[in-house]
Computed example of a mutant assay.
Amino acid sequence: MITFAFAVLFLIITPGPGVLSTAGVGAGYGFRAGFRYLTGLFIGTNIVAFGVITGLAAVVLSVPVIRWVLMGASLLYLLYLAARIAFAGARVAFIAAGSAPGIGAGLLLQAINPKAYAVNTTLFAGFPYAPDNLLFETATKLLIANAIWIPIHLGWLWAGASLHRLNLSDRAQRRINYAMAASMLAVVILALIAGLRQ
């Protein structure tokens, strides 16, 4: 169980579309709006987890056309987000101002987020610790994963919202934008490499 908890921590804490966009919404719209978006991500990640646990995700993703459509939609969204970050100018605004993304946006991101499927598949198919009681193992894995997921994502939201309140120099703000865009591009490249290997 401890090995599983460490795996959850390291798989979730690494920057991916969920945590990067959470920081972005916090930076662009503040904590309250970011919390609504985070609620959608939370619901979405659990829907993905149930899809993986029940095998529905494997069945759906076994159809090459569907898998490539979802992968393409995800990659395009991530490229779009990286471009928005990179060209945000001198202000720290990972997602340009306008109407704040809400619960639906968080749900949608998780539905097309390749990291969500990869992480959940790794966690629920691997790290067995109660092979004689699959129900217990699955239930405790869900509890452990959510107990780690929530504070990590709240931390990223807080970090983004904190940036929103800072009065940084234009140069520092541009550097933050470029670093966040580069992180998103790295996620796109890794997802593309993983998709081409399948």
Rank of each mutant, 00 (worst) to 15 (best):
V69M: 15
Y117C: 08
A179T: 08
L70N: 02
N146W: 11
V187G: 00
G104Y: 13
L142K: 01
P128S: 12
S21E: 01
H153Q: 14
P101G: 08
I66K: 04
R174C: 10
W149C: 08
P15F: 03
L79C: 14
S21L: 11
F4D: 00
A58Y: 04
V60H: 02
V52C: 04
A172F: 06
R175M: 09
A161M: 06
V8Q: 01
H164P: 04
T138G: 06
I43R: 05
T3L: 10
S99K: 12
A116V: 06
W158F: 14
A186F: 14
I144N: 01
G104T: 14
L79T: 13
V59K: 11
N120I: 03
N113H: 13
T54E: 05
N46I: 01
A191M: 03
F10L: 13
G89R: 14
P131E: 07
L143Q: 02
V8H: 01
I53Y: 05
P15C: 04
T14G: 09
Y80I: 02
I152K: 11
A130D: 13
A5C: 06
T3D: 10
S21M: 12
A111I: 10
Q110D: 04
G160E: 02
I13N: 03
P131V: 04
L20P: 13
A130W: 07
L108V: 12
K141V: 00
L61P: 06
N113D: 12
A100W: 02
L196F: 14
F42V: 04
A118D: 08
A82M: 13
A57V: 12
G30D: 02
A73M: 15
L79D: 04
M1L: 09
R171L: 12
A86W: 11
I2L: 14
